[in-house]
Amino acid sequence: MLEYVVSKFNFWTYVILVGIGLYAMIGKKNLVKKLIGMNIMQSAVILFYVSIGAKKGGATVPIFMGDAHAAHGHGIHEIIDVASYVNPLPHVLMLTAIVVSIATTGVALAALILIFRRYKTLNEDEILKIRREAGV
């Protein structure tokens, strides 16, 4: 039982976080709360990718120890044990995803400030009511 829980626990966390983020994006009325939900959902997807890249059994950070330049310059071709380094590819992709997510958050916050300047509120229902009364 413990074995089963531990073997899938990160994926369960990912599912719960996606649920929380989706609920905040749909169910909450405040626009900042919706953005917080979007951030939580993005982090959940990144957690999923990094969990796929993890390796048990003594695997460490994907950085080579020792004298790297000497090994390169003199053509010494060491046999590198693949099982001793975690999978680096998901890390690279998620590095890009984090930076892009902060860019989308910045543009969304700028749009949110613009909405507040025009309607003087951040509540979705009140904004829709003002728009309906204005006949838009």
Binding site: G53, A54, H91, M94, I98, I102
Partner: peptide
């Protein structure tokens, strides 16, 4: 989980810059 590059990018960009942007907007 061994993803140090992702971790320090998240610590500086996600937690640092993201929180600053959110606080500025709030």
């Amino acid at each position: 989980m061994g993803a140090v590059d992702v971790a320090f990018t998240e610590a500086s960009v996600g937690a640092g810059v993201g929180t600053v942007l959110f606080i500025a907007a709030v």
